[in-house]
């Protein structure tokens, strides 16, 4: 009785290690394959640009501004859509890289929950790399695009399909390892 060496004595330990190993494997798979919480995979990849109309930002501060952004003007090539805001600190961080990106492909900006006057000041300070700038003062356009925080950058191919999304500031390693290869692929 003192030390009966049988497999049943170790059953809880075996079972426990089994569960730990299985859950470890599942967690590892989840982390490596699908959605790490810091960069949730966009549901819009492979889909068309959301049809919601985007008003142009009124940078000249005219009283009546009823012009809309027309994505169709860019749809014969790869182009980028960048959600930004003057109040967003990471947008300042990524500004130089957006500038670089704009030298390769057209970049359209959408000012998220921003006043036109603040957008204007931001662009005066950091330069304006955008071909056109839309205004999303209510934040509704961002929701249509599945944006959960600025800055976010989308790549759209010549058919008007969204092929890539990066949430958070564009950093050099992302720019080099993810965005540039996509652009090169299209040009070949």
């Amino acid at each position: 009785m003192k030390s009966k060496f049988s497999i049943t004595n170790f059953l809880p330990v075996i079972l426990f290690s089994f569960i730990v190993i299985i859950s470890g494997l599942v967690l590892y798979k989840l982390r490596s394959s699908s959605s790490p919480p810091s960069n949730i995979t966009s549901q819009l990849i492979g889909k068309k640009i959301p049809e919601v109309p985007v008003k142009l930002a009124n940078l000249n501060l005219n009283i009546n501004n009823e012009e809309f952004l027309n994505f169709k003007n860019y749809q014969n090539q790869l182009f980028a859509v960048n959600f930004f805001a003057s109040w967003c600190a990471p947008c300042r961080v990524e500004a130089p890289l957006i500038e670089d990106l704009s030298k390769i492909i057209p970049v359209i900006g959408i000012a998220y929950k921003d006043k036109d006057i603040d957008t204007k000041k931001f662009l005066e300070e950091f330069g304006n790399p955008y071909k056109k700038i839309g205004a999303d003062s209510s934040g509704k356009i961002a929701i249509e695009w599945g944006v959960y925080g600025v800055p976010e950058t989308f790549l759209i191919n010549e058919k008007g399909d969204i092929i890539y999304r990066h949430a958070g500031p564009l950093l050099y390693n992302v720019f080099k390892s993810e965005i540039l290869p996509l652009i090169k692929n299209k040009n070949q």
Binding site: S35, T41, Q43, L44, I143, E144, W145, G146, Y148
Partner: peptide, 8 residues
Amino acid sequence: LRERYGDY
């Protein structure tokens, strides 16, 4: 919401 942000 799921069409835009996923099951997440």
